[in-house]
Design a protein around this nucleic acid. Structure first.
Lengths: 278, 278
DNA sequence: GTTCCGCATGAATCGATAG
DNA sequence: ACTATCGATTCATGCGGAA
């Protein structure tokens, strides 16, 4: 497979993924992708067709992912005839059936959703990001995504210890919960949570797109190590590849439209050049 | 049914809801509730059992809701053995089968999630809020939930028009959406979106609870009119009733635990008293 | 009045140990 | 083997009385 590393393959995802020469079993560290959503113009498209299209692809992804790897899937259902479509719901249940472990659903809180007016609905400002794995044990580098502690901490710890915080607290619900707030004294950073906001950063590799680079950056940091191999089976304009390079990982991408592959290769070239120049 | 208006009924939800004397067909304007999540202590509880428990209740809710009414359901799945449970997913699909229209899924972005440490996951900071209806046409008072326009507008419109903004902007995705940014010039308030943060507003009622009052307040404003009848079939400590009173709506609540009914009645009494005193 | 400080507490899970 | 209990881990906010 070496000759495919750091390359974008133009072709059909299912076909390429099924090729064991390109993708041997257990060879990928992290899969991260944002597949094309069910085509809203094709109203005849039933949810089940979307699921049927995706499932064999997911089967191959499961074959080629390493046991301690992760699969990140960004997806959101469209609205048709005043109702949200159910293909994300059906797909998730089928992926479970297929043997994937559903580890988490992140809420990607997009503060830049497209404006618009709908009679009985507001702007759609969030998308689902599913985290799947094959096994319980996965790479999970929480230290790579810490965030600054809230301002409350400053006020709270400006001086002497608070006695009460050292005591044990028992919750009414019967779940024993203890804490020692003083342990956080001096902490600068804390774990993030599962609503991802990505406050706008002025990054030179930032690209105003439906799939901004900070998204793969965050998950690559969290779920892989340097030198790992990242796959995006729906590469589009190459954002996942850029993120992988930025973090010193390797990538493989698949893209069916030659025009997109071309754009992606160009972006990657320009990115590499800008790295050398700077 | 008049004798049940502005009352909390102690009893089993399914049994009470099935009583046509209390709840005639098409008699409720808005249902808003946060039912107990699947009990994680009962590990034998399968997702399907939760769904089977809820479905007949939902069937009655559909019977008693007015055609232009709405059903707001707040729910989130627990995690067990490193995986998210699927009962919310199964339930949604079954509710669709039952004939409900799935209008929206709001993300309730909670600023006060429970702290804790898990090996391969972060804190859970959001919950699902489903909006269902029986028909396409529903009450939807968007003007009641407007929010102040973001600071970006000030910057953008501080003086001269921006040429780019005068032109129609066509989305790259081909969705056919377009905008004319200058239309927003001078606007003070805009529509909200489907990620609900409830930043420091409407804090007039003090009660730290899992189900804070601003939640029903928001949906009651959006989806009902003054004098309408609001039902909460899992009333708990009466938060939905307080919200209904605050907005001059009527309420009916059901609660199985007498201790909770008592608390709720007390809270309502105190709320009424505080209104008169002030 | 307004800010500050201490107190209280919220839909949590997991692995280990005890029964 | 199987279930019940226990300890460990973790942030952020609101309220009330004090300064």
């Amino acid at each position: 497979m070496n000759k495919y590393i750091n390359k974008i393959i133009t072709g059909d995802s299912l076909q390429k993924l099924s090729n064991k020469e390109i993708f041997p079993d257990n060879s990928i560290d992290l899969i991260i992708t944002s597949p094309p959503y069910a085509d809203r113009r094709a109203n005849t498209h039933k949810s089940s067709e979307y699921v049927e299209w995706f499932l064999p692809i997911a089967e191959q992804l499961k074959r080629i992912l390493k046991p301690n790897g992760s699969f990140i899937l960004n997806i959101k259902e469209n609205v048709a005839k005043h109702e949200r479509q159910t293909y994300t719901y059906e797909l998730l249940l089928e992926l479970k059936e297929q043997g994937w472990m559903w580890r988490e659903e992140y809420c990607w809180y997009k503060n830049t959703s497209f404006p618009g007016y709908w009679p009985k609905r507001f702007r759609d400002n969030w998308e689902r990001i599913y985290h799947f794995s094959k096994d319980i044990e996965i790479k999970f580098n929480r230290n790579a995504v810490k965030v600054p502690i809230g301002k409350w901490a400053e006020k709270r710890f400006n001086g002497k210890d608070i006695e009460h915080d050292k005591k044990r607290h028992v919750s009414k619900t019967g779940s024993g919960l203890s804490r020692e707030v003083n342990k956080w004294k001096g902490k600068k950073e804390v774990d993030p949570h599962n609503v991802l906001e990505f406050t706008p950063v002025t990054n030179n590799i930032n690209h105003s797109a439906a799939y901004p680079v900070y998204l793969p950056l965050w998950f690559i940091k969290l779920l892989s190590k340097k030198g790992d191999l990242i796959l995006d089976p729906f590469m589009g304009s190459g954002t996942t590849a850029i993120a992988a390079l930025e973090l010193e990982r390797k990538y493989i991408g698949i893209e069916i439209q030659a025009s997109y592959s071309k754009v992606a290769r160009k972006r990657i070239k320009e990115y590499k050049k800008s790295k050398i120049d700077s």
